[in-house]
Simulated assay, not measured.
Amino acid sequence: MTSPAGPPGTPPHAVPPDTSTLAFVESPVQLLNVLEWAYVAPGLDASSVTVVVLSPTDPMSRGQLRRMAEYARQTGMALRWEEARGGSAAPLHTVRALAPLLRAARRVVIGDPFSRYVQLLLTLTRARDLVVVDDGTATMEFVDLLVRGQPLVRWHRGGRSGPRDLAFAPFSSSARRRLTPGEGRRVELFTCMPIEGAPAGITVATHSFAWTRTSFGPPAVGLGADLVGTSLVETGVVDEDKYVEAVRSLATSHGANRYFAHRRENTTKLHRLAVETGLQIVRPDLPLELIARRGPVGRTVLSFPSTVVHTLPLALSGTGVRVAVCDIDPAWLTATASPRAQGFLTGVTSTARDVQRVRREGAAG
């Protein structure tokens, strides 16, 4: 397989590795953040890291993961691709295949503590060194739930539970205990998110996108604006009609020409956006932080509340690009949206550093 262009940028380490590290990722952003963590981790040799990709089913995520896997290989990491969702027998096969690796690992790195797959796998490991790398704004929710001792369930599910949730509850509780420091167990949180009041004993390490800035760019910066898409419609939080109108309004007000689609946005909605807003729809083949750093990129990047309002200012540091965020109007929320939705989305925006706020001009509501 041909490696993608661009240097991987991995630094030398004076201290040889003395641990075996196993990392579990389910999205391209999680794999990017494993690369970022390995780049700055003291004394770590990337060749001691084995990355297990618990492959998702959607084509966009799979394509981006394959591109990111090539960068990981270039740093010396070993890659193991598991078709973890490839049929009813796949989960059992995956767990059985990974059990020996889990028992041997001294350090386990995870990208999504909310993942049922990851929670199940954590019950099989004897590792005393656990690292949680960023999975976007979910990191903030993870810390909050850990502090309050509540189940590790994503905010947009709104506390809803069914028979599967009840059956899985013991594994979720076990995972939460393992992700709490104690009994000789070290837990590190590698994050660029604003974290306040992390549980006692958790080591918080700063994530500044050093690998990304070393490996890509600086980008060519244009005069116009780019708009970043969100999957809030797909997750049932925001009404599609109001979202399309909000995008149209922002594009008109700020002279945006391109719309960078989230990897989970469906093609029907994207086609509608193209027709009704005139925006060029771009489906990135890498996480947006790398796309923007590689360039070209607009002088202004517009976003709704999402992970990128925290990550892009770091990835684009020193380039002169302005990141701006438009809040979600409460009137855009669906009738079935979680009661926690507005508060969480407002918190995403209010805690973002080095971003500007833009008005919700002309949006439906």
Results as ranks from 00 to 15, higher is better:
2 T>V: 13
5 A>G: 11
5 A>K: 08
10 T>S: 13
15 V>Q: 14
15 V>Y: 09
18 D>A: 15
20 S>R: 13
22 L>P: 13
30 Q>M: 08
34 V>D: 05
38 A>K: 03
41 A>L: 07
42 P>W: 07
49 V>R: 00
52 V>A: 13
55 S>M: 15
56 P>Q: 00
60 M>T: 15
62 R>T: 14
63 G>A: 13
64 Q>M: 13
71 Y>V: 09
72 A>H: 11
73 R>W: 00
75 T>Y: 11
76 G>S: 09
80 R>H: 06
82 E>C: 12
82 E>F: 09
83 E>S: 14
89 A>H: 15
92 L>G: 13
92 L>S: 14
95 V>P: 02
98 L>F: 03
100 P>F: 04
105 A>F: 06
109 V>N: 00
112 D>C: 00
123 T>W: 03
123 T>A: 04
124 L>Q: 11
129 D>T: 00
132 V>Q: 02
132 V>K: 08
132 V>P: 09
134 D>H: 10
135 D>G: 06
137 T>P: 06
140 M>K: 10
141 E>G: 13
150 Q>A: 15
150 Q>Y: 15
152 L>Q: 12
152 L>D: 09
153 V>I: 14
156 H>A: 14
158 G>H: 05
158 G>T: 07
161 S>L: 08
170 P>L: 04
175 A>Y: 02
179 L>C: 05
185 R>P: 10
188 E>P: 04
194 P>F: 06
199 P>T: 00
202 I>V: 15
205 A>H: 02
208 S>H: 14
210 A>C: 00
214 T>L: 12
216 F>K: 03
219 P>R: 01
220 A>F: 10
224 G>R: 14
228 V>C: 09
245 E>A: 15
246 A>F: 03
247 V>H: 08
250 L>W: 00
268 T>W: 09
276 E>W: 05
277 T>M: 10
278 G>W: 11
281 I>S: 14
289 E>F: 11
293 R>C: 03
300 T>Q: 03
300 T>L: 08
301 V>Q: 01
301 V>C: 05
308 V>T: 12
316 L>E: 08
320 G>A: 07
320 G>E: 08
326 C>E: 07
329 D>N: 07
330 P>S: 11
340 R>K: 11
342 Q>T: 13
343 G>T: 06
345 L>E: 08
350 S>L: 07
354 D>C: 06
357 R>Y: 00
358 V>Y: 00
358 V>R: 00
